[in-house]
């Protein structure tokens, strides 16, 4: 059971973050606009985030997919997801109803995800991250518990 939970959550996270990283990485200007809409960072730093964040997501997703360096990838995704949730919470707190820009930067108005929905989704991803961490094999390369 642990083995299946581990692989299921690992592959789910890999798919989600490879997909998100790919969409954002291919259009960094549009993604910078989404980050700017959060009104958190000084304006030029939105570009720094847009230029680098998708590649962090992509690399972590690929490592999870290949089942290599799973722990460091999970640790990074835990930090990223916690930061996303804080940012989304600040949107809800400030009453800003923008598209979260989580997956599809530059999406048509009304087709994106609201901050509250994105917050719930990120909570689910956080649960998956913690599940993979808890159910991971005891040591790298060691056979999984049946």
């Amino acid at each position: 059971m642990k083995k299946w939970s581990y692989h299921l959550c690992r592959l789910l996270l890999a798919g989600v973050f490879i997909y998100a990283g790919f969409l954002k990485g291919r259009d960094p200007v549009a993604f910078a606009g989404q980050v700017a809409a959060y009104q958190i960072l000084p304006y030029a730093f939105n570009y720094l985030v847009a230029a680098t964040l998708p590649f962090i997501e992509l690399l972590c997703g690929v490592l999870l997919l290949l089942n290599r360096r799973v722990q460091p990838a999970l640790l990074v995704l835990f930090g990223l997801n916690a930061a996303f949730m804080l940012a989304l919470f600040s949107l809800v707190w400030r009453g800003l109803d923008i598209d979260c820009g989580c997956f599809h930067p530059g999406a048509e108005e009304g087709t994106g995800t609201s901050p509250l929905m994105a917050l719930f989704r990120d909570a689910g991803l956080m649960l998956a991250i913690l599940s993979v961490w808890v159910f991971r094999p005891k040591q790298a390369g060691e056979p999984l518990d049946e």
């Binding site: 720094l48 230029a51 590649f55 972590c60 490592l63």
Partner: peptide, 22 residues
């Protein structure tokens, strides 16, 4: 190391964009 590597890749691919913004 993972974060550093990914940031380096991102910056090397988008350096012109980041330079213009800053």
């Amino acid at each position: 190391v993972l974060v550093f590597f990914a940031v380096a890749v991102g910056l090397s691919l988008n350096y012109a964009l980041v330079l213009r913004a800053f």
